[in-house]
């Protein structure tokens, strides 16, 4: 399909999913009612409260998280030249997770928990980069990934330690639930905190997406074609880390999206990063809104997002693979 037609279709699908997510819930809102409230009709105060204070922040938060994870995963798969890479590869999720559960253990307020998670996510990747540079492995992707695995394992150990120290009646369930991912209780203030991180991370990736795509050919080739590969990769890592840390701080650890959505996008657009990235962002946002809508409606209890992304994602992924479209070499 033509690039513009595809992106237009994906934008349309995302809007439809956003409206669906805003409409469904214990207090159902018709699309007409949603349109009325959004265009300034304040006559139905209950609808206004539900839509503007509960439903919309949550739906938009899901879209932000999905877009962030999908974009970070897409960028990492291309820059690390590996279709099996996810945004967690340099330990950002484990680091952010450690920061957040530490906040939960210390009984900090929600804002502080999120800040701590965000900060620790950034710090973890900064540590990985510093370690890579100290080992003079900046040009070697493998060294960087191995450093990421090592530091990520340390953060994982930290999470286990926090769980061990937590009060099993109160804190441990909260920590466990948080680690499985949830957008329950997201407020407009959370959106305001996560949105800048998403935009700041996304803008350079989108603007430089043609050049970033050259990194898929390997550093020497990219450099011979006029791209400063080392510096560009660091920029990509910084952007992806910013977005992922913000997503994890707001929604907890949500697996699968960052790995799977870029593959879905690639099946539609082919492997060119400049075409794949916008599709991955739109699909990621839509997919996450659907998953979160399911999370709050399929059972009386909220289902953690991490469970749903795997339960929905794995069969879709296998189905796509079974259809035979594999835009990477075997």
């Amino acid at each position: 399909m033509d690039e513009r037609a595809l992106n237009t279709a994906l934008v349309g699908a995302l809007l439809a999913v956003l409206i669906l997510g805003a409409a469904i819930g214990p207090f159902a809102l018709s699309p007409a009612r949603i349109a009325a409230v959004l265009t300034g009709d304040r006559s139905d105060s209950q609808a206004v409260t539900v839509l503007l204070n509960i439903r919309l922040p949550r739906v938009l938060a899901a879209a932000i998280v999905g877009a962030a994870l999908a974009a970070a995963g897409a960028a990492y798969q291309t820059t690390f030249r590996n279709p099996l890479v996810s945004p967690d590869i340099l330990g950002v999720s484990a680091g952010a997770g450690f920061g957040a559960v530490l906040g939960l253990l210390l009984g900090l307020p929600v804002v502080a928990i999120q800040m701590l998670g965000f900060g620790m996510g950034l710090l973890t990747v900064a540590l990985v980069i510093a370690l890579t540079l100290a080992l003079r492995g900046a040009g070697q992707v493998l060294i960087m990934v191995l450093c990421g695995i090592a530091i990520g394992a340390l953060a994982g150990a930290g999470i286990s330690l926090v769980k061990l120290l937590a009060d099993p009646e109160q804190q441990l369930p909260a920590i466990t639930f948080w680690l499985m991912g949830s957008l329950a209780g997201v407020k407009r203030a959370d959106l305001a905190a996560a949105l800048p991180a998403l935009l700041i991370g996304l803008a350079p990736l989108l603007a430089l997406r043609w050049r970033i795509g050259l990194l898929a050919m390997g550093d020497d080739e990219a450099r011979a074609m006029g791209v400063d590969a080392g510096r560009l990769r660091l920029l990509v890592i910084a952007c992806a880390t910013l977005m992922t840390a913000a997503a994890v701080a707001m929604a907890g650890v949500i697996g699968w999206v960052g790995l799977m959505v870029p593959h879905m996008a690639r099946l539609l657009t082919g492997p060119r990063f400049d075409r794949m990235l916008p599709a991955a962002i739109l699909i990621g946002a839509g997919f996450m809104v659907l998953v979160d809508t399911a999370a709050r409606t399929v059972a009386t209890l909220e289902v953690p997002l991490g469970i749903l992304t795997a339960v929905l994602g794995a069969p879709i992924f296998v189905l796509l693979l079974a259809r035979g479209a594999r835009p990477w070499s075997e």
Binding site: T78, R81, N82, P83, W210, R211, G213, L214, A216, M217, G218, D220, E221, A224, M225, G226, V227, R266, G270, P271, R272, R326, P327, W328, S329
Partner: peptide, 25 residues
């Protein structure tokens, strides 16, 4: 220009995609 010994990418680019990359400079 540079012609490497072999391609080192795991992704199934089309021939045209690969040639287009040459325009980057």
């Amino acid at each position: 220009g540079h012609v490497p010994q072999a391609l080192a990418t795991p992704f199934a680019f089309s021939a045209l995609d690969i040639v287009l990359m040459g325009a980057s400079a």
